[in-house]
Design a protein around this nucleic acid. Structure first.
Length: 504
DNA sequence: TTAGGGTTAG
Protein backbone atom coordinates (compact mmCIF):
# COMPACT_ATOMS: atom_id res chain seq x y z
CA UNK A 1 0.00 0.00 0.00
CA UNK A 2 2.78 2.43 0.93
CA UNK A 3 4.57 1.86 -2.35
CA UNK A 4 1.38 1.72 -4.36
CA UNK A 5 0.06 5.10 -3.30
CA UNK A 6 3.53 6.63 -3.85
CA UNK A 7 3.24 5.80 -7.50
CA UNK A 8 0.07 7.70 -8.32
CA UNK A 9 0.48 10.82 -10.40
CA UNK A 10 0.28 13.52 -7.77
CA UNK A 11 2.56 12.72 -4.85
CA UNK A 12 0.83 13.20 -1.49
CA UNK A 13 1.28 12.48 2.20
CA UNK A 14 -0.84 9.37 1.85
CA UNK A 15 2.02 6.83 1.91
CA UNK A 16 3.39 8.47 5.04
CA UNK A 17 -0.06 8.29 6.64
CA UNK A 18 -0.14 4.58 5.88
CA UNK A 19 3.25 4.12 7.46
CA UNK A 20 2.06 5.94 10.60
CA UNK A 21 -0.94 3.63 10.80
CA UNK A 22 1.38 0.67 10.60
CA UNK A 23 3.56 2.01 13.40
CA UNK A 24 0.58 2.83 15.64
CA UNK A 25 -0.80 -0.62 15.08
CA UNK A 26 2.52 -2.05 16.27
CA UNK A 27 2.21 -5.04 14.02
CA UNK A 28 3.72 -6.28 11.75
CA UNK A 29 7.17 -4.80 12.24
CA UNK A 30 8.40 -2.75 9.29
CA UNK A 31 11.27 -4.26 7.33
CA UNK A 32 13.79 -2.87 4.89
CA UNK A 33 11.16 -2.87 2.13
CA UNK A 34 8.78 -0.76 4.20
CA UNK A 35 11.45 1.76 5.13
CA UNK A 36 12.86 2.05 1.61
CA UNK A 37 9.36 2.74 0.27
CA UNK A 38 8.40 5.29 2.88
CA UNK A 39 11.75 7.09 2.52
CA UNK A 40 11.08 7.37 -1.17
CA UNK A 41 7.65 8.81 -0.41
CA UNK A 42 9.29 11.42 1.87
CA UNK A 43 11.81 12.27 -0.85
CA UNK A 44 9.02 12.75 -3.39
CA UNK A 45 7.28 15.44 -1.35
CA UNK A 46 10.32 16.81 0.50
CA UNK A 47 8.88 15.75 3.87
CA UNK A 48 12.03 16.59 5.80
CA UNK A 49 10.69 16.15 9.33
CA UNK A 50 8.94 12.86 8.61
CA UNK A 51 11.98 11.52 6.78
CA UNK A 52 14.26 12.39 9.69
CA UNK A 53 11.92 10.57 12.03
CA UNK A 54 12.03 7.54 9.79
CA UNK A 55 15.80 7.78 9.88
CA UNK A 56 15.58 7.27 13.66
CA UNK A 57 13.33 4.27 13.06
CA UNK A 58 15.98 2.85 10.74
CA UNK A 59 18.53 3.11 13.52
CA UNK A 60 16.17 1.78 16.19
CA UNK A 61 15.10 -1.20 14.14
CA UNK A 62 18.66 -1.98 13.14
CA UNK A 63 17.86 -1.83 9.44
CA UNK A 64 20.73 0.47 8.52
CA UNK A 65 22.66 -2.45 7.03
CA UNK A 66 20.28 -2.75 4.06
CA UNK A 67 21.74 -1.18 0.92
CA UNK A 68 18.19 -0.26 -0.12
CA UNK A 69 17.59 1.66 3.09
CA UNK A 70 21.05 3.25 2.93
CA UNK A 71 20.48 4.49 -0.61
CA UNK A 72 16.97 5.49 0.36
CA UNK A 73 18.36 7.75 3.08
CA UNK A 74 20.99 9.32 0.79
CA UNK A 75 18.31 9.93 -1.81
CA UNK A 76 15.87 11.35 0.75
CA UNK A 77 18.38 13.86 2.12
CA UNK A 78 19.64 14.81 -1.34
CA UNK A 79 16.14 15.37 -2.77
CA UNK A 80 15.25 17.55 0.21
CA UNK A 81 18.28 19.73 -0.43
CA UNK A 82 20.07 18.49 2.70
CA UNK A 83 23.13 17.72 0.65
CA UNK A 84 25.59 17.65 3.55
CA UNK A 85 23.46 15.13 5.44
CA UNK A 86 23.15 13.09 2.24
CA UNK A 87 26.93 13.02 1.91
CA UNK A 88 27.30 11.99 5.57
CA UNK A 89 24.97 9.05 4.96
CA UNK A 90 26.81 8.17 1.77
CA UNK A 91 30.17 8.24 3.57
CA UNK A 92 28.82 5.86 6.19
CA UNK A 93 27.93 3.20 3.65
CA UNK A 94 30.66 0.54 3.93
CA UNK A 95 30.10 -1.02 0.51
CA UNK A 96 28.90 1.39 -2.10
CA UNK A 97 27.39 -0.06 -5.22
CA UNK A 98 26.62 1.68 -8.49
CA UNK A 99 23.20 2.79 -7.20
CA UNK A 100 24.65 4.46 -4.09
CA UNK A 101 27.23 6.34 -6.16
CA UNK A 102 24.64 7.37 -8.74
CA UNK A 103 22.29 8.64 -6.05
CA UNK A 104 24.92 10.87 -4.53
CA UNK A 105 26.19 12.14 -7.90
CA UNK A 106 22.63 12.89 -8.95
CA UNK A 107 22.06 14.81 -5.71
CA UNK A 108 25.03 17.05 -6.46
CA UNK A 109 24.11 17.43 -10.12
CA UNK A 110 20.55 18.45 -9.35
CA UNK A 111 21.78 21.21 -7.06
CA UNK A 112 24.19 22.46 -9.70
CA UNK A 113 27.20 21.42 -7.61
CA UNK A 114 29.20 20.60 -10.70
CA UNK A 115 32.63 20.12 -9.16
CA UNK A 116 31.29 17.90 -6.41
CA UNK A 117 29.38 15.74 -8.91
CA UNK A 118 32.36 15.34 -11.21
CA UNK A 119 34.75 14.83 -8.30
CA UNK A 120 32.58 12.02 -7.00
CA UNK A 121 32.40 10.49 -10.47
CA UNK A 122 36.21 10.36 -10.48
CA UNK A 123 36.25 8.84 -6.99
CA UNK A 124 33.80 6.23 -8.17
CA UNK A 125 36.19 5.21 -10.93
CA UNK A 126 39.07 5.05 -8.47
CA UNK A 127 36.90 2.86 -6.24
CA UNK A 128 36.54 0.53 -9.21
CA UNK A 129 32.76 0.74 -9.47
CA UNK A 130 31.58 0.77 -13.07
CA UNK A 131 29.07 3.48 -13.88
CA UNK A 132 25.96 2.63 -15.88
CA UNK A 133 23.56 4.71 -17.98
CA UNK A 134 21.81 6.07 -14.89
CA UNK A 135 25.08 7.33 -13.43
CA UNK A 136 25.97 8.95 -16.72
CA UNK A 137 22.71 10.88 -16.89
CA UNK A 138 23.69 12.73 -13.74
CA UNK A 139 27.28 13.22 -14.87
CA UNK A 140 26.07 14.65 -18.19
CA UNK A 141 23.59 16.86 -16.33
CA UNK A 142 26.49 18.24 -14.27
CA UNK A 143 28.41 18.94 -17.50
CA UNK A 144 25.38 20.77 -18.87
CA UNK A 145 25.27 22.99 -15.79
CA UNK A 146 28.98 23.76 -16.06
CA UNK A 147 28.67 24.87 -19.67
CA UNK A 148 32.14 23.50 -20.37
CA UNK A 149 31.92 21.82 -23.77
CA UNK A 150 35.28 20.03 -23.53
CA UNK A 151 34.18 18.38 -20.34
CA UNK A 152 30.87 17.27 -21.83
CA UNK A 153 32.65 15.90 -24.88
CA UNK A 154 35.04 13.99 -22.63
CA UNK A 155 32.18 12.40 -20.72
CA UNK A 156 30.38 11.57 -23.97
CA UNK A 157 33.57 9.87 -25.21
CA UNK A 158 33.67 7.96 -21.91
CA UNK A 159 30.13 6.69 -22.54
CA UNK A 160 31.17 5.44 -25.99
CA UNK A 161 34.41 3.94 -24.75
CA UNK A 162 32.74 1.92 -22.03
CA UNK A 163 29.84 1.02 -24.33
CA UNK A 164 27.28 2.39 -21.89
CA UNK A 165 23.77 2.06 -23.24
CA UNK A 166 22.47 5.40 -24.50
CA UNK A 167 18.77 5.09 -23.72
CA UNK A 168 15.99 7.66 -23.93
CA UNK A 169 16.95 9.42 -20.71
CA UNK A 170 20.66 9.56 -21.46
CA UNK A 171 20.17 10.80 -25.01
CA UNK A 172 17.82 13.50 -23.72
CA UNK A 173 20.49 14.52 -21.21
CA UNK A 174 23.02 14.67 -24.07
CA UNK A 175 20.72 16.80 -26.24
CA UNK A 176 20.37 19.16 -23.28
CA UNK A 177 24.10 19.13 -22.48
CA UNK A 178 25.24 20.01 -26.01
CA UNK A 179 22.72 22.83 -26.20
CA UNK A 180 23.73 24.23 -22.81
CA UNK A 181 27.39 23.94 -23.67
CA UNK A 182 26.84 26.10 -26.74
CA UNK A 183 26.99 23.45 -29.41
CA UNK A 184 23.50 23.49 -30.87
CA UNK A 185 24.52 21.54 -33.99
CA UNK A 186 25.64 18.56 -31.93
CA UNK A 187 22.53 18.87 -29.83
CA UNK A 188 20.39 18.72 -32.98
CA UNK A 189 22.40 15.78 -34.30
CA UNK A 190 21.89 13.82 -31.07
CA UNK A 191 18.19 14.58 -31.22
CA UNK A 192 17.84 13.61 -34.89
CA UNK A 193 19.56 10.31 -34.23
CA UNK A 194 17.23 9.34 -31.39
CA UNK A 195 15.18 6.28 -32.37
CA UNK A 196 12.33 7.25 -30.05
CA UNK A 197 11.41 10.63 -28.56
CA UNK A 198 8.99 11.42 -25.79
CA UNK A 199 7.69 14.73 -24.46
CA UNK A 200 10.85 15.42 -22.45
CA UNK A 201 13.11 14.73 -25.43
CA UNK A 202 11.14 17.10 -27.69
CA UNK A 203 10.97 19.72 -24.94
CA UNK A 204 14.69 19.51 -24.38
CA UNK A 205 15.33 20.23 -28.06
CA UNK A 206 12.85 23.10 -28.09
CA UNK A 207 14.36 24.71 -24.98
CA UNK A 208 17.85 24.23 -26.44
CA UNK A 209 16.93 26.04 -29.65
CA UNK A 210 15.17 28.73 -27.62
CA UNK A 211 18.24 29.60 -25.55
CA UNK A 212 20.18 29.90 -28.79
CA UNK A 213 17.67 32.40 -30.08
CA UNK A 214 16.63 30.03 -32.88
CA UNK A 215 12.92 30.62 -32.51
CA UNK A 216 11.91 29.53 -36.01
CA UNK A 217 13.69 26.21 -35.54
CA UNK A 218 12.18 25.77 -32.09
CA UNK A 219 8.67 26.36 -33.42
CA UNK A 220 9.31 24.04 -36.32
CA UNK A 221 10.40 21.30 -33.91
CA UNK A 222 7.26 21.96 -31.91
CA UNK A 223 5.01 21.43 -34.92
CA UNK A 224 6.91 18.25 -35.79
CA UNK A 225 6.27 17.10 -32.25
CA UNK A 226 2.53 17.55 -32.72
CA UNK A 227 2.66 15.77 -36.10
CA UNK A 228 4.35 12.91 -34.29
CA UNK A 229 1.39 12.77 -31.89
CA UNK A 230 3.54 13.51 -28.84
CA UNK A 231 1.61 15.57 -26.31
CA UNK A 232 3.24 18.82 -25.19
CA UNK A 233 3.40 19.48 -21.45
CA UNK A 234 4.00 22.56 -19.35
CA UNK A 235 7.73 22.46 -19.94
CA UNK A 236 7.25 22.25 -23.71
CA UNK A 237 5.33 25.51 -23.55
CA UNK A 238 7.99 27.14 -21.42
CA UNK A 239 10.35 26.35 -24.30
CA UNK A 240 7.97 27.57 -26.99
CA UNK A 241 7.12 30.80 -25.19
CA UNK A 242 10.70 31.56 -24.24
CA UNK A 243 11.71 30.96 -27.88
CA UNK A 244 9.19 33.62 -28.88
CA UNK A 245 10.44 35.93 -26.13
CA UNK A 246 14.08 35.57 -27.16
CA UNK A 247 13.27 36.46 -30.75
CA UNK A 248 10.57 39.06 -30.31
CA UNK A 249 7.84 36.96 -31.94
CA UNK A 250 5.00 38.83 -30.27
CA UNK A 251 2.00 37.58 -32.26
CA UNK A 252 3.22 33.99 -32.31
CA UNK A 253 3.80 34.18 -28.58
CA UNK A 254 0.23 35.25 -27.96
CA UNK A 255 -1.03 32.49 -30.25
CA UNK A 256 0.87 29.75 -28.41
CA UNK A 257 -0.15 31.21 -25.08
CA UNK A 258 -3.80 30.94 -26.11
CA UNK A 259 -3.29 27.44 -27.49
CA UNK A 260 -2.20 26.14 -24.10
CA UNK A 261 -5.86 25.93 -23.05
CA UNK A 262 -6.55 23.57 -25.97
CA UNK A 263 -4.10 21.15 -24.41
CA UNK A 264 -5.66 21.72 -20.98
CA UNK A 265 -2.40 23.15 -19.69
CA UNK A 266 -2.81 25.64 -16.87
CA UNK A 267 -0.24 28.43 -17.05
CA UNK A 268 2.44 28.24 -14.38
CA UNK A 269 4.46 31.15 -13.02
CA UNK A 270 7.10 30.30 -15.65
CA UNK A 271 4.64 30.79 -18.51
CA UNK A 272 3.58 34.16 -17.15
CA UNK A 273 7.27 34.98 -16.83
CA UNK A 274 7.87 34.22 -20.50
CA UNK A 275 4.93 36.39 -21.53
CA UNK A 276 6.01 39.33 -19.39
CA UNK A 277 9.49 39.00 -20.85
CA UNK A 278 8.11 38.77 -24.39
CA UNK A 279 5.97 41.88 -23.93
CA UNK A 280 8.73 43.86 -22.26
CA UNK A 281 11.45 43.06 -24.73
CA UNK A 282 9.26 43.76 -27.72
CA UNK A 283 8.74 47.21 -26.27
CA UNK A 284 5.24 46.75 -24.80
CA UNK A 285 6.06 47.56 -21.18
CA UNK A 286 2.62 49.02 -20.45
CA UNK A 287 0.93 45.89 -21.82
CA UNK A 288 3.27 43.78 -19.72
CA UNK A 289 2.17 45.72 -16.66
CA UNK A 290 -1.50 45.20 -17.53
CA UNK A 291 -0.82 41.53 -18.18
CA UNK A 292 0.65 41.10 -14.70
CA UNK A 293 -2.55 42.60 -13.25
CA UNK A 294 -4.59 39.85 -14.94
CA UNK A 295 -2.56 36.97 -13.56
CA UNK A 296 -4.64 34.44 -11.65
CA UNK A 297 -1.75 33.59 -9.35
CA UNK A 298 0.11 36.10 -7.23
CA UNK A 299 3.20 37.32 -9.15
CA UNK A 300 6.49 36.14 -7.69
CA UNK A 301 9.70 38.21 -7.48
CA UNK A 302 10.89 36.97 -10.87
CA UNK A 303 7.81 38.41 -12.58
CA UNK A 304 8.36 41.82 -10.96
CA UNK A 305 12.07 41.67 -11.70
CA UNK A 306 11.42 40.90 -15.37
CA UNK A 307 9.04 43.83 -15.52
CA UNK A 308 11.52 46.09 -13.74
CA UNK A 309 14.26 45.09 -16.17
CA UNK A 310 11.93 45.83 -19.06
CA UNK A 311 11.17 49.25 -17.57
CA UNK A 312 14.88 49.94 -17.24
CA UNK A 313 15.51 49.00 -20.86
CA UNK A 314 12.63 51.05 -22.21
CA UNK A 315 13.12 53.73 -19.55
CA UNK A 316 9.63 53.66 -18.08
CA UNK A 317 10.18 55.22 -14.66
CA UNK A 318 6.50 55.13 -13.73
CA UNK A 319 5.81 51.44 -14.01
CA UNK A 320 9.37 50.62 -13.04
CA UNK A 321 8.94 52.23 -9.65
CA UNK A 322 5.71 50.30 -9.06
CA UNK A 323 7.39 47.02 -10.02
CA UNK A 324 10.33 47.84 -7.76
CA UNK A 325 8.02 48.59 -4.87
CA UNK A 326 6.23 45.26 -5.20
CA UNK A 327 9.53 43.50 -5.65
CA UNK A 328 11.06 45.02 -2.53
CA UNK A 329 7.97 44.08 -0.53
CA UNK A 330 8.51 40.46 -1.47
CA UNK A 331 12.29 40.43 -1.36
CA UNK A 332 13.61 43.27 0.77
CA UNK A 333 16.96 41.59 1.30
CA UNK A 334 17.99 40.76 -2.24
CA UNK A 335 20.73 43.20 -3.29
CA UNK A 336 20.08 42.47 -6.96
CA UNK A 337 16.72 44.23 -6.69
CA UNK A 338 18.31 47.44 -5.44
CA UNK A 339 20.86 47.29 -8.25
CA UNK A 340 18.02 47.02 -10.76
CA UNK A 341 16.20 49.95 -9.25
CA UNK A 342 19.41 51.96 -9.18
CA UNK A 343 19.95 51.04 -12.85
CA UNK A 344 16.46 52.27 -13.66
CA UNK A 345 17.23 55.59 -11.99
CA UNK A 346 20.60 55.76 -13.76
CA UNK A 347 18.90 55.13 -17.10
CA UNK A 348 16.53 58.00 -16.29
CA UNK A 349 19.47 60.20 -15.14
CA UNK A 350 17.97 60.45 -11.66
CA UNK A 351 21.34 60.55 -10.00
CA UNK A 352 20.12 61.64 -6.59
CA UNK A 353 17.86 58.62 -6.41
CA UNK A 354 20.71 56.41 -7.58
CA UNK A 355 22.77 57.68 -4.67
CA UNK A 356 19.95 57.15 -2.20
CA UNK A 357 19.39 53.53 -3.31
CA UNK A 358 23.12 52.87 -3.12
CA UNK A 359 23.23 54.44 0.33
CA UNK A 360 20.40 52.22 1.51
CA UNK A 361 22.27 49.17 0.27
CA UNK A 362 25.38 50.23 2.08
CA UNK A 363 23.47 50.88 5.29
CA UNK A 364 21.97 47.41 5.19
CA UNK A 365 25.36 45.88 4.46
CA UNK A 366 24.19 44.47 1.13
CA UNK A 367 26.78 43.17 -1.28
CA UNK A 368 26.04 42.45 -4.92
CA UNK A 369 26.90 39.31 -6.72
CA UNK A 370 29.96 40.18 -8.82
CA UNK A 371 30.03 39.39 -12.53
CA UNK A 372 32.00 36.22 -13.09
CA UNK A 373 33.03 34.59 -16.36
CA UNK A 374 34.80 31.34 -16.96
CA UNK A 375 36.65 29.80 -19.85
CA UNK A 376 38.05 26.32 -20.17
CA UNK A 377 41.57 25.96 -21.54
CA UNK A 378 43.23 22.53 -21.75
CA UNK A 379 40.89 20.98 -19.23
CA UNK A 380 41.23 23.75 -16.64
CA UNK A 381 38.41 26.15 -15.91
CA UNK A 382 39.73 29.69 -15.44
CA UNK A 383 37.44 32.08 -13.60
CA UNK A 384 37.49 35.84 -13.79
CA UNK A 385 35.51 38.34 -11.73
CA UNK A 386 35.07 42.02 -12.57
CA UNK A 387 38.36 43.91 -12.51
CA UNK A 388 40.12 40.67 -11.63
CA UNK A 389 43.85 41.01 -11.10
CA UNK A 390 44.46 37.69 -9.44
CA UNK A 391 45.18 35.51 -12.46
CA UNK A 392 48.84 34.36 -12.66
CA UNK A 393 48.97 35.52 -16.26
CA UNK A 394 47.39 38.85 -15.36
CA UNK A 395 50.05 40.98 -17.03
CA UNK A 396 49.61 39.28 -20.39
CA UNK A 397 45.84 39.52 -20.05
CA UNK A 398 46.06 43.27 -19.34
CA UNK A 399 48.21 43.70 -22.43
CA UNK A 400 45.69 41.80 -24.49
CA UNK A 401 42.85 43.90 -23.06
CA UNK A 402 44.67 47.08 -24.03
CA UNK A 403 45.29 45.74 -27.52
CA UNK A 404 41.63 44.76 -27.83
CA UNK A 405 40.41 48.18 -26.64
CA UNK A 406 42.77 50.02 -28.94
CA UNK A 407 41.76 48.04 -32.02
CA UNK A 408 38.08 48.32 -31.14
CA UNK A 409 38.46 52.07 -30.68
CA UNK A 410 40.05 52.41 -34.11
CA UNK A 411 36.86 51.02 -35.67
CA UNK A 412 35.10 54.09 -34.31
CA UNK A 413 33.22 52.28 -31.53
CA UNK A 414 31.65 54.63 -29.02
CA UNK A 415 31.45 53.01 -25.57
CA UNK A 416 27.91 52.61 -24.27
CA UNK A 417 28.33 53.82 -20.75
CA UNK A 418 24.76 54.01 -19.48
CA UNK A 419 25.01 50.44 -18.16
CA UNK A 420 27.62 51.64 -15.71
CA UNK A 421 25.83 52.46 -12.54
CA UNK A 422 27.74 55.14 -10.82
CA UNK A 423 27.43 58.81 -11.42
CA UNK A 424 31.05 59.18 -12.44
CA UNK A 425 32.94 60.65 -15.37
CA UNK A 426 32.77 59.04 -18.80
CA UNK A 427 36.40 58.04 -18.75
CA UNK A 428 35.95 56.12 -15.53
CA UNK A 429 32.79 54.48 -16.82
CA UNK A 430 34.67 53.42 -19.91
CA UNK A 431 37.50 51.85 -18.01
CA UNK A 432 35.15 49.94 -15.72
CA UNK A 433 33.41 48.53 -18.78
CA UNK A 434 36.72 47.26 -20.09
CA UNK A 435 37.15 45.23 -16.95
CA UNK A 436 33.89 43.34 -17.15
CA UNK A 437 34.57 39.69 -16.48
CA UNK A 438 33.62 38.46 -19.95
CA UNK A 439 36.25 40.73 -21.51
CA UNK A 440 38.93 39.27 -19.26
CA UNK A 441 37.85 35.75 -20.19
CA UNK A 442 37.72 36.56 -23.90
CA UNK A 443 41.16 38.19 -23.74
CA UNK A 444 42.52 35.08 -22.07
CA UNK A 445 40.84 32.84 -24.67
CA UNK A 446 42.34 34.85 -27.53
CA UNK A 447 45.75 34.63 -25.86
CA UNK A 448 45.66 30.91 -25.21
CA UNK A 449 44.06 29.52 -28.35
CA UNK A 450 44.42 30.01 -32.07
CA UNK A 451 41.78 30.19 -34.80
CA UNK A 452 39.72 28.23 -35.73
CA UNK A 453 39.28 27.29 -32.06
CA UNK A 454 36.04 28.84 -30.80
CA UNK A 455 36.40 31.03 -27.70
CA UNK A 456 33.69 29.79 -25.32
CA UNK A 457 32.83 31.86 -22.27
CA UNK A 458 30.23 31.21 -19.57
CA UNK A 459 28.99 34.19 -17.57
CA UNK A 460 26.88 34.25 -14.40
CA UNK A 461 25.06 37.50 -15.24
CA UNK A 462 23.70 38.98 -18.43
CA UNK A 463 26.08 40.55 -20.92
CA UNK A 464 25.99 44.36 -20.91
CA UNK A 465 25.23 46.34 -24.07
CA UNK A 466 28.77 47.61 -24.48
CA UNK A 467 30.41 44.21 -24.00
CA UNK A 468 27.97 42.85 -26.56
CA UNK A 469 28.96 45.48 -29.10
CA UNK A 470 32.65 45.10 -28.39
CA UNK A 471 32.51 41.31 -28.67
CA UNK A 472 30.89 41.64 -32.08
CA UNK A 473 33.75 43.86 -33.23
CA UNK A 474 36.37 41.56 -31.72
CA UNK A 475 34.93 38.57 -33.56
CA UNK A 476 35.54 40.48 -36.77
CA UNK A 477 38.94 42.05 -36.21
CA UNK A 478 40.43 38.98 -34.53
CA UNK A 479 38.64 36.69 -37.02
CA UNK A 480 37.39 34.46 -34.22
CA UNK A 481 34.11 32.83 -33.41
CA UNK A 482 33.18 33.70 -29.81
CA UNK A 483 30.33 31.98 -27.98
CA UNK A 484 29.14 33.54 -24.73
CA UNK A 485 26.62 31.80 -22.51
CA UNK A 486 25.10 34.41 -20.23
CA UNK A 487 22.63 33.86 -17.44
CA UNK A 488 19.75 33.00 -19.74
CA UNK A 489 20.92 32.41 -23.29
CA UNK A 490 23.71 32.08 -25.82
CA UNK A 491 25.34 34.69 -27.99
CA UNK A 492 27.36 33.47 -30.93
CA UNK A 493 29.59 36.16 -32.37
CA UNK A 494 30.85 35.60 -35.91
CA UNK A 495 32.40 38.20 -38.22
CA UNK A 496 30.97 41.21 -36.46
CA UNK A 497 27.44 39.92 -35.85
CA UNK A 498 25.68 38.08 -33.03
CA UNK A 499 23.24 35.21 -33.36
CA UNK A 500 20.79 37.07 -31.12
CA UNK A 501 20.51 39.76 -33.82
CA UNK A 502 20.99 42.28 -31.00
CA UNK A 503 17.69 41.26 -29.44
CA UNK A 504 18.16 40.01 -25.92
C1' DT B 1 7.05 -6.18 -3.24
C1' DT B 2 13.23 -3.28 -2.57
C1' DA B 3 17.34 1.79 -4.15
C1' DG B 4 19.74 5.76 -8.52
C1' DG B 5 18.23 8.99 -14.31
C1' DG B 6 16.30 13.17 -18.83
C1' DT B 7 12.96 18.77 -20.36
C1' DT B 8 11.30 24.10 -16.48
C1' DA B 9 10.34 31.68 -17.06
C1' DG B 10 14.21 36.42 -15.24
Amino acid sequence: MIRGCSQIKNPSKEPITFYKKLINRGFPTPNSFTLAFVLKACANICAVLEGKQIHTHVVRMGLGFSPFVQTGLVNFYAKCGEIVLAKNMFDEIPERNVVAWSTMISGYARMGLVNEALGLFREMQIAGVLPDEVTMVSVITACAASGALDLGEWVHAFIDKYVIKVDLELSTALVNMYARCGCIERSKKMFDEMPKRDTKAWSSMIVGLAIHGMAEDALEVYSRMLEDNVKPNQVTFIGVLSACAHSGLLNEGWRYWTSMAEFRIEPLMEHYGCMVDLLCRSGHVEDAYEFVQTMHISPNPIIWRTLLMGCKKKVNLDKGEIAAQRLLQLEPLNPENYVLLSNLYAASSQWEKVTSVRKKMKENGMKTNPGCSSIEIDGFVHEFVVSDRSHPEGILIREMLRDMSERVRRTGHDPWTSDVLHDVGDEEKESSLCEHSERLAIAFGLLKTKAPVVVRVVKNLRVCVDCHEVTKIISKIFEREIVVRDRVRFHRFVNGACSCKDYW
